[in-house]
Amino acid sequence: MRDGALTAKLWAGLIWVVIGFFIVNVFGLIAAVVVNSFATRWLGTWLPAGFTLQWYGSAWSEFQLDSVLIVTVEVVFAVVAISLLVGVPAAYALARRDFRFKRAILLLFVLPLLVPPMTYGIPLATVLYRLHLAGTIVGVILANLVPAVPFVVLVVTPFVEQIDPRLEAAARVFGAGTFRLFFHVLVPLLTPGILAAGLLVLVRTIAMFELTFLTAGPDSQTLVVALYYSVFAAGIRAGQSVDAMAVIYMATTLVWLLIALRFVNPTQLVTRVKE
């Protein structure tokens, strides 16, 4: 009995040591980026020689961050809006109706989340080149819709299933037409699900690298791709201005993450909601 309690204590201790080790290192790497972005010169010491804000200014002009940010906002909001518009009705139909090929359709919605984006990203980029859409914002938005729409469908479906179908029946009995039913009954009831799906797609699209990378041109880069190019080309430019850009990227993501965490469970970021 005592031995059992001791091993249990040791085990719990070990678990928290591992968690602590992981978190310390993650914060270490984030702090390293932040510190470097404010550093005047940082060579071979614990902390830089001095601090400055100049890199943010130079990053802004060097990487044309104003246009990159505008593109990012345009892409992200277009993807969120379109994926909700297309995904929510699909989720409703899948949750409420049984029809032919339903299993096949479900598989179709799961597949884009199950294979690496590279595998369909490259052929998709090829198709977009043929259509002269590659390198444009439209192409980037289309590519990002591929994982976003299935994600919305899978997140919203359980929310629809939670709504008692008798509520809709009741609304019809009391004379609501399809249009009124949708806007007065379903949309208010589905708001938490739509909000959750929208925020999750937003955060995921900001961080989605591969698809944007494969389809973007010089004028249609989002923040994450611009960051990749700047790191890739490091050495040409000062590392600090790369990190200033990284901090701007981080701030953009974290703001939305904080908003998202007020409304959604963190586990929903990686998977669809259950129950």
Binding site: V26, L29, M208, V231, T253
Partner: peptide
Amino acid sequence: VPITLGTVLIAEGLLL
């Protein structure tokens, strides 16, 4: 946090 920051930022952070 590390999930939402994405692979590019993690790579840059780890480099440093």
